[in-house]
Design a protein around this nucleic acid. Sequence first.
DNA 1: CGTGTTTGACCTGCGC
DNA 2: GCGCAGGTCAAACACG
Length: 504
Amino acid sequence: MARPHEMQLLRFEDRIEPTCTITEVDFFSQDHRRAVAEAGASPASPKDHHRVEEEEEEEEEEEKEDSPAHGLTGVNIELNLVPSNAQAGQSVIAENEKPENKVQILTLQRELSQVNEENRRLRSMLDQLTKSYTALHTQLLQVMQQREVHEIRGGQDGKSGVPSRGELLAHQFMEPAPTRLLNTGERRDDDDGEHSSSRNKSSSDRAVVPFPQRHLPHVDASSEHMSPSLEEGKSPRLMQERSTDTASETPCRRARVSVRARSDAPMINDGCQWRKYGQKMAKGNPCPRAYYRCTMAIGCPVRKQVQRCAEDKTILVTTYEGNHNHPLPPAATVMANTTSSAAAMLLSGSTTSEDSLMAPAAGSFLHPSPYASTMAALSASAPFPTITLDLTQTANQLQLLQRPQHPVVPLSMYGLPQKLPGLMVGPQASLPFRPQQQSMVETVTAAITTDPNFTAALAAAITSVMGAAGTTNGASGSNAASIGPAIVPESPQCPKSCTTFSIN
DNA sequence: CGTGTTTGACCTGCGC
DNA sequence: GCGCAGGTCAAACACG
């Protein structure tokens, strides 16, 4: 629900740029953020001004209004000062001829500069928060690893200290070898000593690592380090052997997160660097499937498959597998958290089976939304548990957005600009808000869905929130926890699970 | 020349 | 055992 000052902003922006439209925005790009920052540093074009204020709104959400920036919420630009005829197409020059308008313009300019300055300050705070989160995340992983190593050593004779299965599975997904070993330790008794030594030896190397889902119980010292030669498949047979000979015992050993989004680009920008290592024609789909491997660090096990949907070639299906074993730039953290959180949820929820995941009842972490079942998908037939984030369900999103009491809340609750529709109304700005609601929704929907980066970012943000709330280990997505309280409970788009997000 | 992409070959699992 | 499909490798190639 837009706050009063936001509504003022909305009207103000409509006057400034009636035809303003959302251009393609790469939410994962550092360049984008820099560009926005620069735009904020100088009197920018109205379009840039929009972006600045959008991000400002996002940051305000993240600051939960208790930061020093709270005072800025008054980014109230004294819109009432703008004469009503300004929207009627009169030139600014004409307004300048009136002395009172000069004062108003000066006031606006002064406040705009204040806003820009505040925006810079908020941006720096956000950067600091991101860094802090990364550091804390690393520490958390280290602590969890050490704790699990102790559990493995001390808990072999008893069940005390052994996490529940759901917890275990989540750890299994998120954590490196120790958990994997714990989970399948009984069948690898013959080389336990080797494992312990190698674990201890390499624990520091993997401290930063939310490790891959491709958990390999039979991990020797070399594979513990995920050496490039091995990971690059110098012994692919061994890898496949190891990855498959345990699949029957640990069916959730590998999890995949599939993101469906509309995009004309060959690949969505998720902030990571990828190298294509293969392409295959998949049966039943005329579009080839491309295989990519993360190249941001040597030996990073993360891979992804990109393929267009056979039914709708505008839909790009990106399937992620594995967790990065290296620090990620903020731009890439979002998607990494998405995959980690979603997969962790998938694995942690696997004890309840996908039935409970798909059914809102019985304590499921799904919000009891009637749309939920169409937004999420878990593949039971796939060799690995796969969770799908479907960002292409247009009808549902429109239905949700058209709820009269919460016209824009679903878009705003995760830090998106609550005044977003105002950016898009354009020539309709003079129309009453409610009657144009539907067209606004349609316009916003169209704009959003044409930007794969936006949908990916949105899904990532939401998934991060949900992942933080839905997993107990908190190994990922904790950066989004701060905006968790911003979730509007009554919104049907506020599912308890990252698997139920859909936008378009 | 280094890096990334392409593409045919190879390996493996699975169903019949 | 055979064929098919998915996944990966690695040599050849393209590009800056």
